[in-house]
Simulated assay, not measured.
Amino acid sequence: MSRAVARLVAYAEGRSIALAPHTTHEILESPRPTWVPGAAAHALGLLPWRGRRIPLIDVAALVQGGMTDRADACRYALVVAWQEAGEAALSYGALALHALPQMTEVSDVQLCPLPGDSGLWPRLALSCFSHEGQAVPVVDTARLFSATSAGTAR
């Protein structure tokens, strides 16, 4: 039986995604993004981070196809990274969070089908596992940000 560690990120009440721990870099408290006119409905804006401006997105608004509530500022931002190609520089973005992510150990016996609540899961997820009675998609950060119109500012 194979085991792996995953970072659980709650994106809505009772709903989470999982990320590979190596893709997560830093948690920021009380992020203050700059709103970008004309940005996608799930985009909260550009977040200053280490001399860059990186896109901050609301995963719930992305997968549920709704608008993000800009008045309800997120409590945290999780900075994530991905690489477009083998030799390319890392790209960065951030996920809006209302609670801190958790670590969990996952085994292949927890494999389950993707949730049926969004047509985006097949494009975003590498796999899915069951955790505490819910299906948790394992999301590829590159796919998550390429599926958005929030941009990939570096």
Results as ranks from 00 to 15, higher is better:
M1K: 07
A4R: 14
A4K: 09
V5Y: 04
A6M: 06
A6C: 06
V9F: 06
A10Y: 10
Y11T: 05
S16N: 10
A18N: 05
L19R: 03
T24P: 08
E29H: 15
S30V: 14
S30H: 15
P31Y: 04
T34I: 09
P37C: 07
P37E: 04
G38Y: 02
G38D: 04
G38E: 01
A40M: 07
H42F: 08
A43P: 01
P48H: 07
R50Q: 14
G51M: 00
I54W: 01
P55Q: 03
V63N: 02
G65I: 13
T68S: 15
R75A: 13
A77K: 05
A77Y: 04
A77I: 11
V80P: 07
A81I: 13
Q83I: 12
A85T: 13
E87F: 14
A88S: 15
A88V: 11
A89V: 09
A89G: 13
G93M: 06
H98N: 13
L100P: 11
M103H: 07
D108S: 12
V109Y: 12
L111F: 09
C112N: 03
P113L: 05
L114Y: 04
L114K: 06
S118A: 12
G119V: 13
L120V: 12
L120A: 07
L120H: 05
W121P: 09
W121R: 07
S127T: 11
S127W: 05
S130V: 05
S130P: 07
S130I: 07
H131V: 12
E132H: 10
V138A: 11
D140Y: 01
D140R: 10
A142H: 13
F145V: 09
S146V: 13
T148L: 07
T148F: 05
T148D: 09
A153G: 15
A153W: 01
